[in-house]
Design a protein around this nucleic acid. Structure first.
Lengths: 215, 215
DNA sequence: ATTGTATACGGAACATTGTTCCGTTTGCAA
DNA sequence: TTGCAAACGGAACAATGTTCCGTATACAAT
């Protein structure tokens, strides 16, 4: 078997699937799964989600059988990559909140979200294809992103940097609408500007809180 | 060769392609082309635009080679069907204008447009796939539909049945947006209601014309 | 360290579908 | 009636998703 990577396997996955007292997931399997997801993400970004499975397998340095062992259907791979990126975007909220002041963190996260949506334009077509394999994706999407944004919003509102009472769902949909639709020509720069404008709109009408000593 | 259809071929296509004094398009070719488009339309409606070419050929009662003679690429067939339905929708404007009063004609056409957009949800995925084969479709779409709607709008405005100054493009986009987006669950009835509301919105603020004796 | 085995791997083989090619058939003008 | 360009049908090819199974290996038990 391949021995390309000596990195310690932390078994960080908390799937809780390893049966008590049973064998752990084999290290090479975990490693291949990670490699596969990463390779698939890159290939999808370059060639779109219609890229051949063989190409992904080759890039990851594994056999086709291995791909299908981890992802019985091609769509499973796509969904897994999507979820992974949704997770990354959601996690970015916490990181930004730790590093920047609430208002700044919010604004930066929104741009991060724009990047995410823009990069996933290829996936959008698959999502709208009507294939039931993707039915759960929007649910996961909202479930993961809404709390992240809500936390940012509340923190920024508490700090008096944005107005209160803004619905996370509204904001998520507004941004994705700004990034996506207009026919066939999507200008990323334009999307970015529109979203920046939206962020400024949030700031407008902010009411400095009393619980927070104003500077 | 097949001889399943005795219907007179009117050669109504005004492609202007038959060379002066040259051979006319063979009758069976024209007949097969019509049959193909009709079969494709039906198959697409049932199985989506990803339906196998073989299935369409079978339904039309022709060989695969014949399909590819008329439509070198699969996407050519899809585009042809789409254009045919766009034409039908655009032509409906004239028919409705002849049969109903301006305001009624406008309202009915908008519902007709809703039907068209809703039925074409399957095509939307293909259109957004990024395949350059579909690049010209939106252009044709607007080129054909905008004048049709504009005529209806102006007639209705002149009759004092709707307000003036409404942009056809805005209306087209608004309706398609109402029909399409919301995640994964599109409720046709809801779309219909929303569009009806929109139509009422047009009526609001209508200024009865002086040139037209009010009832 | 050795060993047994459940686990995972690799890739050939298969199934489906888009596309090409070419021998055969046929509409139609002379 | 006849000649042939146009059109046809479908076998063959190519690309790609998916399955299957013999082989390799990580790892727990000893």
């Amino acid at each position: 078997m391949k021995e390309k990577n000596k990195a310690r396997v932390a078994i960080s996955k908390s799937h809780g699937s390893q049966k008590r007292r049973g064998r752990r997931v084999r290290a090479d399997a975990q490693r291949n799964l990670d490699t596969l997801l990463r390779s698939a993400m890159e290939v999808f970004a370059v060639s779109g989600v219609d890229a051949p499975v063989r190409q992904i397998a080759e890039k990851a340095g594994v056999g086709i059988g291995t791909v299908y062992r981890h992802f019985p259907q091609r769509s499973d791979l796509i969904v897994a990559v999507f979820r992974r990126e949704v997770d990354a975007c959601a996690n970015a909220a916490g990181l930004l909140a730790a590093e920047y002041r609430p208002g700044e963190a919010l604004a930066r996260w929104m741009q991060r979200y724009v990047d995410f949506i823009s990069a996933k334009r290829g996936l959008a077509a698959a999502l709208y294809s009507g294939d039931p394999a993707y039915d759960t994706v929007p649910f996961y999407f909202r479930k993961r992103l809404r709390p992240a944004l809500q936390t940012l919003l509340e923190a920024a509102a508490a700090a008096g940097e944005v107005r209160a009472g803004v619905e996370p769902d509204d904001l998520l949909r507004a941004v994705s609408s700004l990034c996506a639709p207009a026919g066939h020509n999507s200008d990323p720069a334009q999307a970015r500007r529109m979203v920046a404008l939206l962020a400024d709109g949030l700031r407008y009408g902010a009411r400095p809180s009393r619980k927070h000593s104003s500077s």
